[in-house]
Design a protein around this nucleic acid. Structure first.
Lengths: 195, 195, 195, 195
DNA sequence: AATGAATGAGTGTTCATTCAT
DNA sequence: AATGAATGAACACTCATTCAT
């Protein structure tokens, strides 16, 4: 009644995350999820309105955490370049730590219902915009080159971050923080003012 | 009996591409594809062994074209930095021109059968490696900084490229080549040797 | 703790009646009923053995009332034609006043369990037979034509009564008693002995 | 390959009709229907879009036939009273001959989708109105009493007709035509002008 | 008297694929 | 080269009911 019973909803989310990441949302059946979690379908539908809901809850948690983390760093009183570097490195580290959620994020967002997709997109935009303002701040302050649209730089960088799931392997030559620092360094390099 | 009948297999591939990109591989039924192409299921199974086959053919074509393009540029006798810049800009332009195929590529690869996935991965690796060698060449020649693993830079860059489908909109403020040149420029900037 | 709490079982029956009439027995879920009544499933199963039970209770009440009403009228010492007219008009009025119960009656009887269906049928037969005896009395006494089987006349008439739910609308041109009187009049007319 | 294979769609409709009448639409599963018809679910969905469709097709056929029959009789050049008597008797006979379809009609109409229900209702109204015009014709011509709304008489009569399924048993004391003639006679009697 | 988590059998429907023609 | 009827397994989801509390 203690360890096995780790809260049914939590167990469902855990197993769903694992399976969605491994096989994709559409290729994972509700049956597989509930079996992996050791409960019945009825139990799942008692807690979640639909399979979509499961996906959405996974998204929502990751988004919430990453946004919170970004805002904390971006609003700190460290120098600008340090704030951007930390934010960039942090998002890489957290993406690697939650590689499954991240993979799902990237691959399955378009399978959500329109309504929920809207909610996710809104949250994502908020994240994107906070990051962009950091860059714009540096551009107007002279820290960063101003000849690249800040939006484009953000999209460029987050493409790289989202792509981590395609190549990063735990136990490989680089640790999460190492990759994060490399990525942050590359980002700052590309923003260095010419000459 | 001439224009309408633009080769059944070609029409099937065209419509499948469009639909896979719009709704995802799993969410697209064979019925929808054949209806969009104006043929019957039997006809489709006459030309393609399975739905997977359709996906594979789409991949194969894009991969073949991009690899050919890269090799042509990489093996030319232009200066190294120009070769990398051209290769980078070109892959962005071609990705934008085939935004649908690109989206499919990114989202549906893991839905292929193991065997075909292997073939695709092999071709992709070939592409990746040619690109990496270009960078390594610059690193050993002193054109580029050597403190970043070339692999990591390639993954960083192709993350950005694959991500184009998530934000690039035709008719937006930037043309395909403009984005390509910005991306190439950012890539070269991040590889600039430290003062 | 007084007005809102108008006896849980009563509230359940009320809401069930409304919902069954609107959507049909099978299309109404226990969940909907308990939500409409503002209680939980457990509470419902505390008072009623099953969903079927709910339906049965609704039937039983209506049947009991209509049978009682009929017997009072039929056994009175008014002249025969007046007794039949009153009985006919009354059943129309009461059917209109309980249009919901009536609709359910008609549409859902065959969804009861065999055992309960038997009980309902027995009660209905009793009703039917009391009505028939009224007609037979008139036929042997010369009040009514004798060339129509009394059973057939009863079925003819109650078809019309059961059908009320399909066309009668409150607020329409005719009041309940008006329809009742028309129906009673039609019944007596069709029983008039031939010149 | 001849008798057993009596056209799959026809067999499906036959069995569906029988089962819907016996157990009600909601209590009949698609599985039961296809088993009774000796085909698979896939086959059923090849011919019918949904379970609803099956119900609708049953309705549509009966309605079409009854409307055609009514119009033929009503537009003939027989005397008015004869035309009404024939129409009334005919609809009883055809209702008895298709007792199953009739039962379904009465019990399951509200389970159709809104759209299809509209179509059915429109056709029914057309039927109802042709019948009503027949009565009105007699009322203005002096054949029938004029103190009863024609609409009410039609509803009264069709209640009786729809109710046939609840009591008429094949092999009982009365044949279909006998019941039809009794019903027609009762209808004419109730419309006789008061002495 | 009442809760609400959990069950498990069942529902209508979809779909890639096969095959006789 | 192409049809279209048919399969059969799978799917997401529903629901009346139970039971420990």
């Amino acid at each position: 009644m203690v360890s096995e019973q780790a809260a049914v909803p939590r167990r469902l989310l855990q197993q769903a995350t694992k399976l969605f990441a491994k096989k994709g949302f559409d290729r994972t059946s509700v049956q597989e999820i509930v079996e992996a979690a050791g409960v019945t379908k009825g139990a799942m539908y008692h807690y979640f309105g639909s399979k979509d809901d499961l996906l959405y809850e996974i998204y929502a948690r990751v988004l919430r955490e990453q946004t919170a983390q970004l805002e904390k760093v971006a609003d700190s009183d460290a120098p600008l370049r340090a704030r951007l570097a930390t934010a960039a490195s942090d998002v890489v580290v957290s993406s690697i730590e939650n590689l499954d959620d991240n993979t799902i994020f990237l691959q399955s967002m378009h399978q959500l219902s329109t309504e929920k997709r809207k909610a996710v997109r809104a949250e994502r935009r908020r994240y994107h915009e906070r990051f962009r303002r950091l860059i714009e701040e540096g551009q107007s302050g002279g820290d960063f080159r101003a000849d690249k649209p800040a939006d484009l730089v953000v999209d460029f960088f987050f493409g790289s971050v989202h792509h981590l799931g395609s190549w990063y392997r735990r136990g490989g030559p680089l640790g999460a923080r190492e990759v994060g620092d490399h990525f942050a360094d590359l980002l700052l390099s590309m923003l260095r003012p010419e000459a």
